[in-house]
Nucleic acid binder design. Structure first.
Lengths: 139, 139
DNA sequence: ATTGCAGATGCAAGGGGTTGCATCTGCAAT
DNA sequence: ATTGCAGATGCAACCCCTTGCATCTGCAAT
């Protein structure tokens, strides 16, 4: 379990400060059942604290991503979505026809990561990838 | 070589029409040395035909992509780029630190495509992918 | 408890891209 | 050569997101 104290430490170690906005935004991501979009986070936090500005939400999510507290995924619906690191890594297969998203095991990408490292000396960041295509029902 | 006649046929077969705007936009993509961004296309075509609207450029590129005449790549610089199909498929490794993009051979992705088809019955569209990470100089 | 200040926020303007709608036009039928 | 009309365009408004800047504040040093 990550406590508020842990977050304070993680932030201060990088020269950042804990603000109520950051705490509320992180709570919103952690508390979400599924991947949550920026404006869902914004609206949710605004219920408690209406003065919040949307740009703070974007900047905070960028920071939380940098600190490894949340991961970001582009599911192709025109808005990026966030997910607590507590809920583990996984990837997505997104169907272009029906829009369905299928969770994909991380292991499928391991050979690719290894090949890129071997052949191109490139350290790929594949922490939360979405791959587009056609699902079995739509093929 | 693809002629204007070929394009007319390809369009009409799908119930679309050939317009001067479409022809000029396709010419701009075909004539570009490298991946060209939407507003580069817009500015280039505007030189010949100033009445052109930017939304026509977006809609036309969407159509050309659908018809397989151009491919689209997101190189992570905040704008999508286009590339003529005539110049072949390839993928990109984009370094988060220095911004360099490395061309990657298509064959690296074949095992992934096969695995997704086998394990998930999912037909992945990996025609012009960008993978983010850290390049050898920045590791 | 005060103070100082770098880091954080709110605000407003701007950038890339999309969309609804009225008008226009390619093109097939006549 | 005309006509009809679905498809295409231009326009304006909008959406998601980012950025510059003035103000505010967490928090460490005193």
């Amino acid at each position: 379990m990550i406590t508020t104290g842990d977050i304070v430490n993680k932030l201060s170690r990088h020269g950042y400060r804990l603000t109520p906005q950051r705490l509320m935004i992180l709570d919103a991501v952690d508390g979400a059942d599924d991947h949550i979009s920026t404006d869902e986070i914004y609206m949710q936090v605004c219920d408690q604290y209406p003065h919040l500005n949307i740009s703070t939400v974007y900047r905070t999510l960028e920071l939380l991503k940098e600190l490894g507290l949340v991961t970001e995924t582009d599911l192709g619906d025109g808005r990026v979505r966030y997910h607590s690191i507590k809920k583990g890594h996984h990837h997505h297969l997104v169907c272009h026809k029906c829009g369905q998203t299928i969770d994909m095991d991380e292991s499928v990408l391991s050979p690719l990561k290894a090949a890129l490292s071997r052949d191109y000396d490139f350290d790929a960041e594949l922490s939360h990838l979405a791959i587009f295509g056609i699902c079995k029902n739509c093929r």
